[in-house]
Computed example of a mutant assay.
Amino acid sequence: MVPRQHNEQVTVDGQDHDVRLGVWVSNQKMRRDRLSEEQLGQLAGLGIDWA
């Protein structure tokens, strides 16, 4: 479970970026009926139990 307000800081090419991970997870969960089987499979492979 990721709280909706959770932000994760990642480094890409030496630059730090804030990623709104909680918002992204929430959006994917709400839109799961519009995700392709491939996308759902990839999320399931990451351990997302609702995928």
Rank of each mutant, 00 (worst) to 15 (best):
A44W: 11
D49W: 09
D49C: 01
Q9N: 10
L21K: 06
L46W: 14
E8A: 13
D18H: 11
E8T: 11
Q28Y: 04
T11C: 05
L35H: 05
M1E: 10
H6L: 15
G47S: 02
H17W: 11
Q15F: 11
N7S: 10
S36T: 15
N27G: 02
T11S: 13
G14K: 03
D16M: 13
E37W: 08
V2L: 05
L40S: 00
A51E: 12
R20C: 06
R34A: 13
R4F: 10
V2R: 12
Q39I: 01
H17G: 03
G22T: 01
V23S: 06
Q9F: 06
E8P: 00
R4L: 12
V12G: 05
L46D: 06
D33Y: 05
D18K: 11
L43S: 00
W24H: 14
R31Y: 02
V2T: 14
W50D: 04
S26P: 00
L46K: 04
V25W: 00
W50E: 09
A51I: 11
P3T: 04
I48C: 04
D13A: 09
R32H: 01
G14W: 03
D49E: 15
N27D: 13
I48Q: 07
Q28E: 07
D13R: 12
G47R: 01
A51L: 10
A51Q: 04
V2A: 06
G41V: 01
Q15P: 01
W50G: 05
L43W: 11
R31A: 13
R20L: 08
H6M: 15
I48Y: 14
V19M: 03
K29T: 07
R4Q: 07
L21M: 14
V2F: 04
S36R: 05
G14C: 08
N27C: 02
T11H: 06
D18N: 14
H6D: 11
L21Y: 09
D18A: 15
L43M: 15
V19P: 03
H17K: 12
N7P: 00
V2M: 06
A44M: 08
M1C: 07
V23C: 03
G41A: 10
D33M: 08
V2G: 04
R31L: 10
K29Q: 15
Q28K: 12
R32D: 01
R34W: 08
V19N: 04
M30E: 14
P3D: 13
R32F: 02
G47K: 01
L21A: 15
D49K: 08
Q39C: 04
W50I: 11
Q39A: 15
V10I: 15
A44R: 15
D33L: 05
G45Q: 11
R31F: 02
G45E: 10
I48L: 07
Q15E: 15
S26K: 07
V12F: 05
G41I: 03
G41E: 14
N27K: 05
P3C: 05
Q42N: 11
V19W: 04
Q42E: 15
K29M: 05
N7Q: 14
Q28P: 01
V10E: 10
L46Q: 09
H17N: 06
H6K: 14
S26Y: 10
R4H: 07
D33V: 08
V25Y: 02
Q28W: 08
G14Y: 03
D18M: 14
D33P: 01
M30Y: 13
M1Y: 09
V2H: 05
G47C: 10
V23T: 13
R31W: 00
E8W: 09
